[in-house]
Design a protein around this nucleic acid. Structure first.
Lengths: 129, 129
DNA sequence: CTCAATAATAGGAATTGTTCTTATTATAAA
DNA sequence: TTTATAATAAGAACAATTCCTATTATTGAG
């Protein structure tokens, strides 16, 4: 049931996401993938982003500014959301000791993962102009 | 400039947020505050939620399901987002040592704060029915 | 190879969450 | 009081996302 069939559009989306560390929005993905697949529609981008996320192939980053960002890297790492320019950048910091396990001691629910986002100014915005 | 004037509507919104640990959405806030202010409009709820957030009186929680949740508690603490029922609950776990400071060693940007959300099943959804 | 089943698409309509606009009302300070 | 202006209700406008439908592409079987 529901076998996944190949599509050039999905491959382009994934390939673009894996080629950048900019954590683009759906709109940005659309604009880039358009250059390879000129006839792609925005609906196709949204559908595939959702599917790839569900399959665990990409990650969604919600930073509270009303824009969803996407990440082609699924291994856990940290992000910095810049309150000035709205960018999302990686922070290459070692992962903390198992937060999930620690948290599980403090709830009767089940912990399956977590996400940490830092807020502040990115390297570009913090520099004097 | 821009002095803040009292309004019964804002007070009701804040009072409701502080009375619950359910981390309601704007829509839910609207439905509850309606019982005290029957003529309140959804726009007023959104405007005040945004203002209270800007003033640092409440917090916004973005968990990636397309629904913004609000928290009348502003002191740092952890949340669990339930993938089954979509609820946001508190996890009363001691705060980790200063993550902000640690992260600042790994970026040229400025860290002002962070947010950690756990994902999994809440206590209610994990129990056998 | 050819064909049948069906997943995926493009394009646009529809939906949803949120913000904006405007005339009116409430607050607060002189 | 009076006056300046912040806040409101109501609904229009907007933007991000999902849904709909007829068509196209992929894939596995024969």
């Amino acid at each position: 049931m529901a076998t996944v069939k190949y599509s050039r559009q999905r491959e382009s989306i994934l390939s673009y996401l894996r080629s950048t560390t900019a954590h683009p929005t759906a709109e940005t993905v659309f604009n880039h993938v358009r250059e390879i697949c000129p006839s792609i529609s925005l609906g196709t981008v949204y559908r595939n982003l959702k599917q790839l996320e569900t399959l665990g192939i990409i990650r969604r980053i919600s930073c509270g500014d009303g824009n969803e960002h996407f990440d082609g890297t699924v291994s856990p790492h940290y992000h910095l959301f810049c309150r000035s320019c709205g960018s999302v950048s990686d922070i290459n910091m070692p992962l903390l000791a198992d937060l999930n396990q620690l948290a599980s001691h403090y709830t009767e629910g089940t912990i399956e993962g977590h996400s940490t986002i830092f807020y502040g100014l990115c390297a570009t915005c913090v520099k004097p102009r």
